[in-house]
Design a protein around this nucleic acid. Structure first.
Length: 659
RNA sequence: GCGCCCGUAGCUCAGUUGGAAAGAGCGUCUGCCUUCUAAGCAGAGGGUCGGGGGUUCGAGUCCCUCCGGGCGCGCCA
């Protein structure tokens, strides 16, 4: 509701300035520091003063007195050294915000351009940990944001089922546990197989570190897996698929779902790389180094400097194919990125992997056969790769690869949705029993090693959160059934966890601490959920007290005069600020979507909840005797509730009816 | 060595294309539950926005430099 008016003000000012002074400039607007100064301010006269070589104060007066009426704006005033402050028509804003509620969602049509978002991407060899959760929650919130703004989105969770990490677990089962494939399959059917592999993986890491000669064993296992047949390959398939199911189950607890699981094994077997290789050679994007340290390798020049390539200058060359003929990780990634844009000229086969409770199907790639009912995957218009910031360099190489092939517009539409890692506070690491050096103990955070079996497992954290939430619910609601308690506790646990991971901006390293993550007070998900519950409690009680009460009828019986009276300054400033903030969700969504920053929504939700709590404390609505005022307060509560629910939904958090 | 990121209150963090007097949570201290649930509210205290220089009418925000911290740069994946 806010941003259309803001845009009208900007356009009106720009048009006026163009007509009157013949100057073309982009008008900036901002929120004044205090509500007494209006709702939209522009410092445009400072810029104009410079251009016209006149005093800003003089220009601002001319504009304010002659610009005329702008729809939604009550008046324009002069402030400070030359600010133009616009004061909105409060009652009109409130009416528009209230009636627009619930009608703002844009539905994606099947023809609208598709965005591909790849996230989660956990190596399928051990349980998911807190760092993986940040990736998945961030990716999922971004997907929700895109879908809300009307984008069609395909969610992919890439499975590296042929890499070293899976190989190491297979090595562990074979050499440390002396297990056969059938025995591993039996274990994989047991619950918490991902936990078992977590420990085994740590043991394998230790086993390999003890004697470097054992690395040969790993090489053999990898070769066998890549070849795709034999006991080791079958075991790798068993392990990785079982672990993927564990991960999907964990993600389902957080209501994170996917459309497709593209697998590394198919990229290999369907020879995606060979196709990309031919393209790269044909367009001269890579060349074979004849001399120097890279002799015998196919390399790509990152600087795009052809002369450097001629000279075999190694400084800016990235090896794509090793001298033994095998392709590097980035090479495969280039092929995969080409497929995402529909540029590779090859496609996977697809089979259903599972069905979600709402009937939606999750598909997996396969190398032959497959189902004819699979939707058209890939061919994205825009591609977002949710990958931590440490992979910035390889991501740049992939984009450079697209550019070298002449796909400049696809390169521009390849986005590395990067974020910083989750580390542990030294205190937290100590609590978990990890040995820290003196140096580490002084740092603000310590990075933990999944290889060594360190880290906070996602399911453990979720269990703890649910347990705590359940204890809280039990102490407050003795009347709840077991099912109700579990449901509410689950919603609170998710709210706490998702909010915790989303309230930090992407570039901030999260120093994880149980104390903060397990909190339900202050700037947390449950705080926001609680505000929604408070609003709903009012409506519930109102329905009990009043026959035929409904939120729809409130709107019909509302009169504009009351809103105008109650929102009028100065007494109405508090109600107005809450209304204004509630009506600004759209502006926040726009900002969050364009900055790729879900944290903006989290911050907004908290601020709105905070202001609502203040309002809740000040006004006892149901005992309000003035029926017009009571009606207005209820409408305002309904507006806030709806906006909070929408904001929470974008974060993937559900607000329970009671808590 | 090269590249990228960060440094804001005791702690953890916001501060959206440069804009009016620096914000929040936690922690500390002081109050508020016969009311629509206190997972809440009010108040107090706490800041040379790492240092210095520059650009600008205006800098936490842009540029330079220094200090401090992190990450990346492999014929690993």
């Amino acid at each position: 509701m806010y941003q259309p008016i803001e845009k009208r003000v900007r356009d009106a000012l720009a048009a006026f300035i163009r007509a009157k002074y013949g100057v073309e400039l982009s008008v900036v607007t901002e929120r004044p520091p205090k509500i007494e100064m209006g709702e939209i301010a522009s410092p445009v006269c400072f810029e104009l003063a410079k251009r016209l070589k006149r005093a800003p104060r003089q220009i601002v007066q001319e504009i304010a007195s002659t610009i005329g009426k702008i729809d939604g704006v009550e008046r324009i005033e002069i402030a400070g050294a030359g600010y133009l402050n616009a004061y909105l028509d409060r009652a009109a804003f409130f009416r528009a915000a209230s009636s627009a509620v619930g009608r703002e969602t844009v539905r994606a049509s099947a023809e609208s351009p598709k965005a591909i978002v790849e996230h989660t991407n956990i190596n399928p060899n051990k349980a998911a940990h807190i760092g993986h959760l940040r990736n998945a929650v961030l990716g999922d919130a971004f997907v929700r944001l895109l879908r809300y703004t009307g984008r069609r989105v395909e969610v992919q969770n890439y499975i590296d089922n042929t890499g070293v990490q899976v190989a190491d677990v297979v090595l562990g089962f074979v050499h440390l546990e002396q297990k056969t494939e059938a025995e591993v399959r039996a274990l994989a059917a047991q619950p918490q197989f991902d936990y078992l592999c977590w420990d085994l993986y740590a043991r394998v890491t230790h086993f390999l570190e003890e004697d470097k000669a054992r690395l040969e064993l790993r090489g053999e296992v990898i070769k066998a897996i890549e070849h795709g047949s034999g006991e080791a390959a079958e075991m790798a398939e068993t392990v990785s698929t079982a672990i993927v199911r564990c991960h999907l189950k964990t993600m389902s607890r957080l209501e994170i779902e996917y459309d497709l699981l593209p697998r590394e094994s198919e990229i290999l077997h369907l020879k995606f790389w060979d196709a990309a290789f031919q393209m790269l050679i044909a367009r001269g994007a890579i060349h074979k180094a004849a001399t120097g340290k890279n002799a015998g390798c196919w390399v790509m020049e990152l600087s795009g400097d052809k002369e450097a390539a001629e000279r075999d200058d190694e400084a800016d060359a990235k090896i794509i194919v090793r001298s033994n003929g095998t392709v590097t990780y980035v090479g495969k990634d280039i092929a995969y990125q080409l497929w995402k844009f529909g540029l590779l000229g090859k496609d996977f086969y697809y089979a259903p992997f599972l069905s979600y409770p709402d009937g939606r199907k999750l598909w997996v790639t396969c190398s032959a056969g497959g189902s004819g009912e699979a939707p058209a995957f890939g061919r994205g218009q825009e591609v977002f790769n949710v990958i931590d910031s440490r992979q910035a360099y390889p991501q740049q190489v992939v984009v450079a690869g697209l550019r070298a092939l002449g796909f400049n517009s696809e390169a521009d539409r390849s986005v590395h949705f990067s974020y910083e890692m989750v580390a542990l506070t030294p205190r937290c690491a100590a609590e978990m029993g990890y040995q820290l050096s003196e140096e580490e103990a002084k740092k603000p955070y310590v990075e933990v090693s999944g290889r060594k079996g360190q880290g906070v497992k996602a399911d453990d954290l979720l269990d703890q959160l649910e347990q705590r939430a359940r204890a809280e619910v039990e102490s407050r609601h003795r009347d709840f059934s077991d099912g109700e308690r579990a449901g509410v506790a689950h919603a609170i646990a998710i709210g706490a966890l998702r909010y915790f991971l989303l309230k930090f901006t992407r570039g901030t390293i999260i120093a994880f601490d149980f104390k903060d993550a397990l909190s339900f007070e202050g700037e947390t998900g449950p705080y926001v959920q609680y505000a929604v519950v408070r609003a709903r409690n009012i409506f519930r009680k109102a329905r009990e007290q009043e026959q035929g009460f409904s939120l729809e009828r409130l709107e019909e019986t509302a009169d504009a005069g009351t809103a105008q009276r109650l929102l009028a300054p100065p007494e109405g400033n508090d109600l107005w600020e809450l209304s204004l903030l509630a009506g600004s969700l759209g502006a926040q969504i726009e900002a969050a979507a364009s900055a790729h920053e879900p944290a903006f929504i989290a911050k907004y939700a908290f601020q709105l909840a905070q202001q609502f709590n203040l309002f809740y404390h000040k006004h006892h609505i149901l005992s309000e005797e003035d029926p017009g005022k009571k009606n207005f307060l209820l409408l305002l509560s309904a507006l806030v509730e709806k906006q909070l629910v929408t904001a929470l939904d974008l974060l993937g958090v559900e607000a329970p009816e009671k808590m």
